[in-house]
């Protein structure tokens, strides 16, 4: 569950318009929701509130059992291990192979014995159809493959929430559809999925819910029947 209670966000510094104004929405557990709107509408800012990289200047954000008002900095790692995050620019470790990119996140949480690492990572790589590229470096992969690596990494802790910020922004249509199919499988397995994109045609195909942002405000909140358009 992700809840925004009358959230305002204003970045520090003079002359900034508020990035978000009075956002009041709730994404229930297990929903596959899209966040739509033109560039600068506040989609990325909203996702940063979910990972608590930013805190609201007013209002509160509730994510799982965490609350932006009361959360302590030292609780953030455990929050983020329960949220998978996927970006437009993939954000892979360039000097590590596909396998190592994912294994690294596991090592971080103390999973250090090789058989366990192998088992978890290879299963994930099979899940995103990258088993055969496990020893490649990010620069040796196509955009779609890099994004699938990033998704495998995001899924490593079996997160309850998967967030994606313009995940198909750098991809061709076929790769984009592959990515969305993976998201749908994750959603079917029970996770809450929240995808920010300016591509309404993708949302039309997959969304259970479409939240439209403009200039920091929610302007429309639609629950389209699948495949019927927004």
């Amino acid at each position: 569950m992700i809840g925004f209670d009358h959230v305002h966000l204003r970045y520090p510094g003079p002359g900034h318009e508020p990035a978000l104004e009075d956002v009041h929405v709730e994404v229930p557990t297990g929903q596959m929701a899209f966040l739509l709107g033109p560039s600068g509408a506040g989609k990325t800012s909203l996702l940063k509130l979910v990972t608590m990289e930013e805190r609201p200047t007013q209002g509160r954000v509730r994510v799982l059992e965490f609350d932006s008002v009361t959360v302590r900095n030292r609780e953030l790692p455990s929050l983020r291990r329960r949220i998978g995050m996927v970006y437009q620019d993939f954000r892979l470790l360039r000097d590590k192979t596909v396998f190592e990119n994912i294994a690294y996140v596991l090592r971080m949480t103390g999973v250090l014995d090789h058989p366990t690492l192998q088992r978890i990572v290879l299963r994930l790589l099979t899940h995103v159809s990258l088993y055969h590229k496990r020893n490649h470096f990010p620069d040796q992969l196509s955009g779609g493959e890099q994004q699938r690596t990033a998704i495998a990494r995001a899924l490593v802790h079996e997160p309850r929430i998967l967030l994606a910020d313009e995940p198909t922004g750098n991809l061709d249509t076929v790769s984009a559809l592959e990515i969305l199919e993976i998201f749908r499988r994750v959603h079917t397995a029970g996770a809450t999925v929240l995808i920010a994109t300016h591509d309404e045609s993708l949302a039309a195909r997959y969304a259970e819910r479409a939240i439209f942002l403009e200039e920091g405000r929610v302007v429309r909140d639609a629950r389209p029947a699948r495949g019927r358009g927004l």
Binding site: T51, E53, P77, S78, R80, L93, V105, M108
Partner: peptide
Amino acid sequence: RETIRILKIVGATGSF
């Protein structure tokens, strides 16, 4: 720095 930004987002603790 970029690597560390990534580590933070995947839930690395400060001590890690």
